[in-house]
Design a protein around this nucleic acid. Sequence first.
DNA 1: CATGATATCGCATAAAAATGCTATATGCTA
DNA 2: TAGCATATAGCATTTTTATGCGATATCATG
Lengths: 211, 211
Amino acid sequence: MGKMTNIALIEDDIELKELLEKYLNFQDDFNVVLSVVSAEDFFEEFKQIEKIDILIMDIGLPGISGIDALPKIKQHLPHTEIIMLTVHDDSEKVFQSLRRGASGYLLKNTPLDKIKESIEQIFAGGSPMSPNIARKIVEFFNPKQIEGQKELSTREKEIVVALVDGLSYKLVADRLDISIDTVRQHIRSIYRKLNVNSKAEVISKSFKGEI
Amino acid sequence: MGKMTNIALIEDDIELKELLEKYLNFQDDFNVVLSVVSAEDFFEEFKQIEKIDILIMDIGLPGISGIDALPKIKQHLPHTEIIMLTVHDDSEKVFQSLRRGASGYLLKNTPLDKIKESIEQIFAGGSPMSPNIARKIVEFFNPKQIEGQKELSTREKEIVVALVDGLSYKLVADRLDISIDTVRQHIRSIYRKLNVNSKAEVISKSFKGEI
DNA sequence: CATGATATCGCATAAAAATGCTATATGCTA
DNA sequence: TAGCATATAGCATTTTTATGCGATATCATG
């Protein structure tokens, strides 16, 4: 037998919580060591547990939300991998969870065997992600056009990426192997298309998905 | 019978190409309508195909690379969903592919039945992604802690917010009702604490949650 | 084949940002 | 209380950015 994986659950839907508990405990190498219905309960009890490898938690919890609890949990348990299991599929919640340290993001319609698979993926250095969540992320990297805003060319998008990386004109030129004057020219076109007149605005728009 | 899904392949590994072709054609509702070994061949032949729903392509192709071919393909076939199937798992290639319009990203060790599943996920509005690839993305959103990064003061955080809003020093001074020299001074402190030396880097860090 | 979008490069200049140095006042804390 | 971080402000200089103007070449589209 391999080593046991210790799992904790925070889930206020009692039915789902018990189902998960039973299913995971039924697996040979999984062991549910803590199962609570709120973040508050978790903070009260987690210190009594020797080791938590995986925490599966909801977002829509009573009291402290799952997202707000994330930083505090990661602070106390930096080596625990956290999987969000939730009905929320809006980009804001997804990105917030990831920024605050979640390693995976599953929708509640995920079948039990896929949840098991997700835990195994974590140990294989992967990040389990429901396909619909992954789509949000893909859209972040390749946002849809804003109405009335002109499409940037491939080269212009590359320039934007470089600006977002914090590069100066000189370094952009080096990365793309073009002259600094050409960089200037592209940036001019970008400013015109986006109706801005500073790098700062381009970077902000990029992060806000407005490009 | 449901409607047929038309699939195209660009894969220079002949063995894999033929295996995929056979496997996908064997499925009831899949139909491999084009199967070539290079981007050049694809551009020559794709116009003869009435409809391509899904394109599965490699990155490491002879001649034009898969990544370089992406924008041109999306331009001609904006409604074709593209899945990258490749051995490359470095962040740069992953992000480049996504920025250039790929809808999914699978590693070559993906089993055939998972590839089939991925195609179905695309039609369900999802983005198939190997777990190891998803991990790269998660790390993008939650970068590792920068060692010895100092906490910003309240005033400094206000300045950061103003910079993120795309304001110039002058406008920051106006908003906070302080002199432009004081703004400079605060920004100096911010740069020192964050180990950067441009507005662009501050804004990026802010969006990435590194502040 | 003309037109427009893209991609490249150069020169010049004004505006903004980055940095070096100095200085005063306040509040916290070791 | 001496030291430290914060918040304020000024001046000078260098570097980077923003913008105006001009130019050539390619490619796709009408």
